[in-house]
């Protein structure tokens, strides 16, 4: 209550244009409750509706597998599935999720035995490993939509995921293996 009063008092002292901006930012920071379907489980979170799913997962649900890399959908480290389709969670506000099912790397398989995960192990893909959850989520989504991708299909689906260690050739080999399973 005091916070609201404080804000109202503050608003009186500012010019009309910035007052509008202040009001806008005030509304955008209102908390709201969301019932989210994450990895097959219903989860309730109370957050600012503009919060990207990346930070809802990491800060509010303690799912640390989804990584922060750039915050502007340029690197793919934060890739999750929304109803099975790969999306960049850093650009997905929690308010846009609705009833759609969110799958993170932790929920891709029960025992780390999704064909893509198995292929990643088999090809010993990872170096530092930081980008690999995002790479795996992109690859799993690709194979779901296109079970026999060509090399060009793989390039098209995977080029939004950056790996500075340079594991691209192994990733491609692993996707080919997973596709043949």
């Amino acid at each position: 209550m005091w916070k609201v009063l404080e804000r109202l008092l503050f608003r009186v002292t500012v010019s009309p244009t910035s007052r509008l901006a202040e009001r806008k930012s005030f509304y955008s920071t209102l908390m709201a409750t969301f019932n989210l379907k994450i990895n097959g489980k219903l989860q309730k979170v109370e957050v600012d509706p503009t919060t990207p799913m990346l930070w809802v997962l990491r800060d509010h649900l303690d799912l640390q597998g989804t990584k922060y890399g750039c915050g502007i959908a340029q690197c793919g480290a934060c890739t999750v599935h929304l109803d099975g389709i790969a999306v960049r969670s850093c650009q997905l506000p929690v308010s846009a999720v609705g009833k759609q099912a969110v799958t993170t790397i932790e929920g891709l398989s029960a025992h780390g035995d999704h064909p893509v995960q198995k292929a990643w192990i088999e090809h010993d893909v990872a170096q530092c490993g930081y980008c690999q959850a995002g790479q795996i989520m992109s690859a799993a989504s690709l194979l779901k939509m296109n079970p026999r991708p060509s090399d060009a299909d793989i390039d098209a689906a995977m080029s939004g995921n950056i790996c500075r260690c340079g594991t691209y050739t192994r990733i491609k080999a692993a996707i080919r293996s997973a596709a043949n399973r």
């Binding site: 303690d62 640390q64 597998g65 932790e106 780390g112 990643w120 010993d124 990872a126 690999q132 959850a133």
Partner: peptide, 29 residues
């Protein structure tokens, strides 16, 4: 002889291995 990364499984299943993943109760950002 070729041996697979001992952390391979933890990496592909998204285990909290990195300092960005490290948390403690009451932690501030």
């Amino acid at each position: 002889t070729p041996r697979q990364n001992v952390d391979g499984m933890s990496i592909v299943t998204g285990k909290p291995l990195f300092s960005l993943d490290y948390r403690q109760p009451g932690m501030l950002i």
